[in-house]
Design a protein around this nucleic acid. Structure first.
Lengths: 144, 144
DNA sequence: CATTATAGTGGACTTTGTCCACTACTTTTT
DNA sequence: AAAAAGTAGTGGACAAAGTCCACTATAATG
């Protein structure tokens, strides 16, 4: 088991890392979308014909809140709502051309954010970074 | 330079990791404090006789917002305010016994959070985790 | 059928955070 | 020493983000 000092170091890292990502997000994400709106948009972009309730469940958002976000998106011409064939209580969401553009832009910005994160590292260090992150990912997520 | 796939992997990791920490925070932090309030409390706990403006600057919070949080803390008996000797516009903050207890509790919970994070890993894997995290920390923060 | 559950919506509200203006004091400039 | 400029803390007013509840319409279950 890890000792107290090591646990503190992990806590420090977590704090610093989330802070760093938060700062980069603030800087990079000067889009017309809030953070949650961005997540909703990306969630819809993953596969088409997603329903509002799926979005809400996957992102653990209140369904009422989600509904309002989607209304905004519709008003802004980012998503289309079409009645679901399977369940007439429900709705199928799809991105408009504008929405797809916005997704592209968000993705490009997120990529740039990562590049910024690594820009002061040498090629070799970037490889080390990637390797270490992959280790964490395997231990925490992938192997589950 | 890292390729597109690798960058995507990093983005995925970042998303998963912040999500994980967020969930743990929500679950663990069922204290009477919001996240920002927790940060303010810890900030005050680092060293005594900190002034409100120092707290606001260090945490990059609005000073007005900070002022309100501190008022709440005072009302709840978490911090004491005493007039600053050096600058009579200012205030020196200190934790009450209650406040110190709360800090202890927050720290214990944060430690527990880390332990929960690692609880499904073997000792050897925990060492791998720690090693990988240290590498990231060195590359991103410490060596700066 | 009758009951129970679910999808989406809007109203009302709370929490969180921002912006601005103000007072009281301090520091700097002249 | 007086005037000007800057700073610490506060409250009002507001905006943004998120929660809770009640409701309608439909679906699923027995």
């Amino acid at each position: 088991m890890l000792n107290q000092t090591e646990i503190s170091q992990i806590r420090n890292f977590n704090r610093d890392y989330t802070k760093l990502l938060g700062i980069l997000n603030k800087k990079v994400l000067d889009t017309p979308l809030s953070w949650t709106e961005g997540r909703v948009l990306l969630e819809i972009s993953f596969n088409n014909d997603k329903t509002p309730i799926e979005v809400a469940n996957n992102l653990k958002l209140d369904k009422s809140y989600t509904s309002r976000i989607l209304n905004r998106f519709e008003k802004k011409g980012i998503v289309n709502k079409s009645p679901s064939a399977k369940d007439s209580r429900s709705i199928e969401l799809s991105l408009t051309a504008t929405g797809q553009e916005l997704v592209k832009e968000l993705n490009a910005r997120s990529d740039q954010q990562i590049k910024d994160l690594l820009k002061d590292l040498s090629i070799d260090e970037q490889r080390q970074f990637f390797q270490a992150m992959t280790t964490l990912d395997n231990l925490l997520f992938t192997r589950k």
